[in-house]
Design a binder for these strands. Structure first.
Lengths: 363, 363
DNA sequence: TTGTAGGCGTTATCAT
DNA sequence: ATGATAACGCCTACAA
């Protein structure tokens, strides 16, 4: 044991340990139990003692040790959320609203990201639970049933966001990705487009991406387009990837007249690639997105897309979780409305493309 | 004690409690101490017993209880970061890199946001410390000295990012906001602009915003512009606010020929407001930003801005913190290079504005 | 209304 | 190399 030597003590060694419940109790002349009650059940203690104790708490800058509290109470008032990525904007707004609503209920948010990898997600779930998360927010339905089994077995309340299925018995607060994309696709086809392509996020383990693709295919079938006539490019979420995918489409002998993208970010990349190739959106090629995040308004031309009520979704999810935590029977399955936002990136089929060839517009 | 009744047990009541160290120890036929060692110091245990124990760990799906661990070990391998906001993109990329580098060092990131409010920041710091954060990442220098005093007293290692001052004795990994904005302003003035305005984030409690404004003023003085001839509009970070500020500028009898914005988001708003007013960027008014986030490339015209090496900054910050945690003397003060990215939003003064009037360009 | 005391799951010190 | 055991700081019956 090295002798204490405050004079040349290395930095960052605690000069003063953080105050404990015991410190507060002693300073206030009460028992630790009373201090604890002042903090956790203020109404179960006299106003005078409470004021006295709280004053000491303030003065000492006391903050309950989280680990100890979790250990003793077996609950943390912490909600864990695992999102696919923090770097990009899709989840930011919804998560912010989620957090704000949690705070209103005295709950704290803990965020982890899975990089769209199911194995990492499972690991993050375990980590968050070990950290004492009282409940979990998950994105989408797709994950191994073993994960759900574990959640059920441990009795961990959870909610799913960003997806919705009418038949599901799982608590979900989201929107119908299939229905939303169906409406958008209808609009595209009603404008006369018949040569369309899809740029989608990877569909594996992602029911949202998959539902959107399925919706387009279904609508295509409605207007008599063969299933394999719709080319699908899958690529991870980023502007660059969207652009690269579009470059691939343009490199083909005959390009589509409309490109439906699985999200706004890919769509923005696609628009850029089209413009870089010297073509015009939507005069030569129409582009649509999904999400209606900020860049959809910023890009030129404005992106026609599906507006998702992200903030509302986050807020409702927080309410559902808060209610479940209090033992209340929360509404399990909440469907939020989306709407198509028409901007300029979707237009009618260019006259020169009325046939399936883009060449030859003369007599 | 209510009788256990699994048949009609309400949902979300744990059917099986999570496995504990003791469960693992029993199943493996060793003591809890050995299990603990297998997890924390694998080399201090026989290979055979280690394999046996780890197999049981895997099979039971054991994850150490975080609270208990924190309580006993007095460390959590968790780093707390308090950023002004999660909703917007400035911090996302740097934080992602920070997180990735932390993970490489076996450290976990805990994020909290302060909404640009010092009081909330102080509260979040307390919360993160109570949650066991071993070290902290803070944004910028500006905060009450009482906060620093508390950090020192408790011996909490911390690092500051997004700002840098050569004389500072505080560990900072950032860039010189003043110098960076100075160079950009020089460029603006060398293009002949003399009627300039500033749209800045609120300067209070924000040394980054303040340094940027000061830099512009200093460069203005260099070219003989009176200090009060540069109009400054302060408004919180958002596209809408940037647009609103620009609308205010345009409503005046004589508008500036160049608008320097404190960040890209405000700049994008300004561009939109200018275009909505029927004017052209940069033909009528030039606009510059700061940060070089994604929208700077997406907006039309492309935004001339200052590129900040966000990822590098996050990574270096994580390295500094990791080293400090290991007791090493980390480089205290790291200055990263910024560079001006020239796109299309900054151009020469329009001919009609060579004098300080924008009217009357012909005899 | 307040105090007493046992226990939460882990780490770390000390024997063995 | 491994095992017993005392903290760690807090909550919560239970007792007063």
């Amino acid at each position: 044991m090295p002798p204490a030597n405050p004079q040349k003590a290395p930095r960052n060694r605690p000069i003063a340990d953080p105050p404990t419940l015991d410190d507060v109790a002693r300073a206030a002349g009460v028992s630790t139990a009373t201090v604890s009650r002042c903090l956790n059940a203020p109404d179960r203690v006299t106003a005078t003692t409470r004021d006295k104790v709280l004053a000491v708490v303030e003065q000492l800058g006391y903050a309950p040790n989280f680990g100890a509290r979790a250990l003793a109470a077996k609950r943390t008032n912490t909600i864990g959320a695992i999102i696919p990525t923090m770097e990009n904007a899709i989840f930011a707004r919804g998560l912010q609203a989620f957090q704000e609503e949690l705070a209103l209920n005295g709950l704290t948010l803990l965020v982890a990201s899975s990089s769209y990898r199911p194995d990492l997600e499972a690991e993050q779930i375990r980590t968050l639970l070990a950290r004492g998360a009282d409940a979990l927010l998950l994105i989408g339905f797709d994950r191994p049933s073993s994960v759900y089994a574990m959640l059920e077995r441990r009795g961990v309340p959870y909610a799913i966001a960003w997806s919705y299925r009418s038949g599901s018995d799982q608590p979900a607060i989201g929107f119908d990705n299939f229905a939303a994309m169906s409406r958008l696709a209808q609009q595209v086809f009603s404008l006369g487009h018949r040569d369309v392509a899809i740029i989608s996020a990877p569909q594996e383990d992602n029911d949202r991406a998959r539902d959107r693709v399925l919706a387009i295919k279904a609508e295509a079938a409605q207007v008599g387009i063969a299933a394999d006539a719709v080319q699908i490019t899958e690529t991870p979420y980023s502007v660059e990837n969207g652009a690269a995918a579009m470059v691939g489409l343009l490199a083909q002998p005959k390009h589509p007249t409309a490109v439906l993208c699985g999200n706004d970010v890919l769509a923005v990349g696609a628009i850029r690639a089209i413009q870089d190739a010297g073509l015009k959106v939507p005069d030569d090629i129409s582009v649509t997105g999904f999400d209606d995040i900020e860049i959809a308004r910023i890009v030129t031309p404005g992106l026609t897309t599906v507006h998702v009520p992200h903030r509302e979704m986050g807020k409702r999810a927080a309410q559902v979780i808060a209610k479940r935590l209090k033992g209340g029977e929360a509404p399990g399955n909440v469907a939020l409305e989306t709407r198509i936002v028409e901007r300029a990136s979707l237009g009618p089929v260019p006259p020169s493309c009325r046939t399936s060839s883009r060449q030859g517009d003369g007599p």
